[in-house]
């Protein structure tokens, strides 16, 4: 087991991603952040809080993707988590999906389907804390905290203080 990102690394990555999101979308007017539970939702909240500090409040929501997973049949059913739409909805917005680790890309594919159920945003972008490679689908991230080359047998574990009592990204061999 080795530590890939410390608490301050995570903090800096979130701040940089926030700036990149603002730069790319020219501000917060048409912006919506949607976090994918569990940890993606906390990351979205952190990005939202930082953007609020520098430019003002940004619409933020939570997107549960359980019902759209293509591996539903392969494992026991999971309890559904709440999906929270921001007050203005997502119709015609520039939507930024936020997740902790980008791996096969299947979660994001499911998220794209789930978004289709809720409305039609003008664009969908993707922000992740860690990109560990090994994509199985043609999906890429627009904002990446850290690119970490891994082997398929390893796993990357993100800890966030809201859920795991500490901020840490570790590689488990």
């Amino acid at each position: 087991m080795s530590i890939l990102l410390s608490s301050s690394d995570i903090d800096r990555a979130i701040k940089r991603i926030s700036h990149e999101i603002l730069e790319h979308n020219q501000g917060i007017t048409n912006l919506v952040l949607m976090g994918i539970p569990t940890r993606g939702a906390y990351l979205a909240d952190r990005i939202s809080a930082f953007i609020t500090e520098i430019e003002g409040p940004v619409a933020t929501g939570v997107l549960d993707i359980t019902l759209h997973r293509d591996d539903l049949r392969l494992r026991p059913p999971k309890p559904l988590l709440p999906t929270k739409l921001p007050p203005g909805g997502i119709e015609g917005k520039d939507l930024v999906l936020v997740d902790d680790v980008l791996f096969s890309g299947r979660t994001i594919r499911a998220a794209l389907d789930a978004i289709g159920e809720l409305g039609r945003p003008r664009s969908v972008q993707l922000a992740v804390l860690v990109d560990r490679g090994h994509r199985e689908l043609p999906i890429r991230a627009d904002y990446v905290g850290k690119n970490i080359p891994t082997s398929k047998s390893e796993s990357v574990k993100v800890h966030l203080s809201e859920y795991d009592n500490e901020d840490l990204v570790e590689l488990i061999k």
Binding site: L67, H68, P79, L80, P82, T83
Partner: peptide, 23 residues
């Protein structure tokens, strides 16, 4: 209680514009 909270989420989804899920 778990079933009831799952039902609540499903009710919220099916109140939206698209009532059908692929599950």
């Amino acid at each position: 209680l778990n079933l009831l909270s799952t039902a609540k989420e499903l009710a919220a989804i099916t109140d939206g514009p698209n009532k059908k899920l692929p599950t």
